[in-house]
Design a protein around this nucleic acid. Structure first.
Length: 308
DNA sequence: AATTTGATCAACCGCGCCTCA
DNA sequence: GTGAGGCGCGGTTGATCAAAT
C-alpha cells in the first residue's frame, strides 16, 4: 500500500500554466504569502492545481528574483567547478548511489542567485554535460585560494568519519575511504586496493570492486551500507558520518544483481561510465586534484553549501 | 513544403526527511 | 515513540520549437 496522494488528481488541472493562473498564484502569494502550507494554498487562492504544482511554479518561475534566459559563462564555470566538488563525490559512489545519498543540484543553485535547482539541472543535462564530453569545457577543481572554498578545513567531521584527516599522509581518496569503511564488501582490503599518490592513479582492482558492489551476490547479506548525512536537506551540517547499518529496508540496496549492476555502470544521473572512469578512477589531472586537498573537499560539501 | 530529428525546459512524479500532534 | 501531513529534492517525461533532411 503506497502513500496517499497529496491531492485529488482527478480534480486538479495539470500541464502548462496559463497566464491567468500565473497571475492568480502570484497575486495570492504576494498578498498572503504561502501560509506555510502549499497543499492548502490552491484552494484558498482559487486555483484548481495541486499544491506541489503551485509551489514548483512559484519557485521555478514566478518568484520575483528568478533569472530567465541563458546561463553566462561565469555561471557555467561555477556550475562546473561545484560539480567537480559535489558531483564527483557522488560518482565515487556508485556506492553513494547505493546508499541513497542524493546529489544536490540545489546546493549548486544556491551559489547562483536567481537560478533554481531545476534550471541548473536542465542546463547541466542539456548543455554542460555535452560540452564536457566533447572536451570543450573541463571540470576543474577549485584551488585553496578560491573564495568558494573554506580557508581551512572546518571542524565538521566527527571522529567516526571515515574521511581521513589532513595529517594522514597515507589516506585513500574518498571513494576508497568509503569502500574501506564498508568492510562487508568482499575483496576490499589493503592488499587489493591501491592508489598511487605520486601519479594519482587507482590500482586496476578498484573498478572490479565497484562493479562488485553492483552485484548483490558479492555483498555480505548481513550488512546494509548506509551513508548518514546529518543536516541533509535542512541546514548547514555540523557533522557527518558514514556508518554501517543493519536495519533492513532503511536503505536501497540492490536485491537483484542483473539490472542494478548494469545500471551501476552509468554511475547515476546520466554520467557515462567512461567519463566517470576518466575523472575518478584515473587521476590523469592529478595536479588539479592534489591528494592533500581531499579533506577540505569533503568538508566543503557539508559545511559551506547552504540550501535555499 | 513536409517530415523527421534533436534540443530545450516546464512540469510531473515518487520518495526521503522533517515537523508536529 | 509513532504516524500523518507536508516540504523539498533529484529523476524523468512530454510538449514545443528549431534545425536538418
Amino acid at each position: 500500500m503506497g502513500r496517499a496522494p497529496c491531492c485529488d488528481k482527478a480534480n486538479v488541472k495539470r500541464g502548462p500554466w496559463s497566464p491567468e493562473e500565473d497571475a492568480t498564484l502570484k497575486s495570492y502569494v504576494e498578498t498572503h504569502g504561502t501560509g506555510g502550507n502549499w497543499i492548502a494554498l490552491p484552494k484558498k487562492a482559487g486555483l484548481r492545481r495541486c499544491g506541489k504544482s503551485c509551489r514548483l511554479r512559484w519557485l521555478n518561475y514566478l518568484r520575483p528574483d528568478i533569472k530567465h534566459g541563458g546561463f553566462t559563462e561565469e555561471e557555467d564555470n561555477i556550475i562546473c567547478t561545484l560539480y567537480a566538488q559535489l558531483g564527483s563525490r557522488l560518482n565515487y559512489g556508485t556506492l553513494i548511489k547505493l546508499c541513497s545519498c542524493l546529489f544536490r543540484w540545489s546546493a549548486i543553485a544556491s551559489q547562483l542567485p536567481g537560478r533554481t535547482d531545476n534550471d541548473v539541472k536542465n542546463h547541466w543535462n542539456t548543455k554542460l554535460k555535452k560540452k564536457i564530453m566533447s572536451g570543450e569545457v573541463s571540470l576543474k577543481a577549485l584551488t585553496n585560494n578560491d573564495p568558494l572554498i573554506p580557508s581551512s578545513p572546518t571542524p565538521s567531521l566527527t571522529q567516526n568519519s571515515v574521511f581521513p584527516s589532513s595529517q594522514n599522509q597515507n589516506f585513500l581518496p574518498p571513494m576508497l575511504s568509503i569502500l574501506d569503511a564498508n568492510s562487508g564488501f568482499n575483496n576490499v582490503n589493503e592488499q587489493n586496493i591501491s592508489f598511487d599518490q605520486t601519479n594519482g592513479l587507482y590500482g586496476p582492482h578498484v573498478m572490479d570492486v565497484v562493479s562488485e558492489i553492483g552485484a548483490s551476490s558479492s555483498i555480505n547479506n548481513n550488512i546494509n551500507p548506509m551513508v548518514s548525512l546529518s543536516g541533509e536537506g535542512s541546514s548547514v551540517s555540523d557533522s557527518s558520518s558514514i556508518a554501517m547499518n543493519n536495519n533492513k529496508g532503511s536503505v536501497s540496496q540492490p536485491q537483484h544483481a542483473s539490472d542494478e549492476s548494469m545500471e551501476m555502470m552509468d554511475f547515476g544521473f546520466g554520467f557515462p561510465y567512461d567519463l566517470v572512469n576518466g575523472l575518478n578512477c584515473h587521476y590523469e589531472r592529478v595536479g588539479e586534484f592534489p591528494p592533500s586537498w581531499y579533506p577540505e573537499w569533503v568538508d566543503f560539501s557539508y559545511a559551506n553549501i547552504k540550501p535555499h
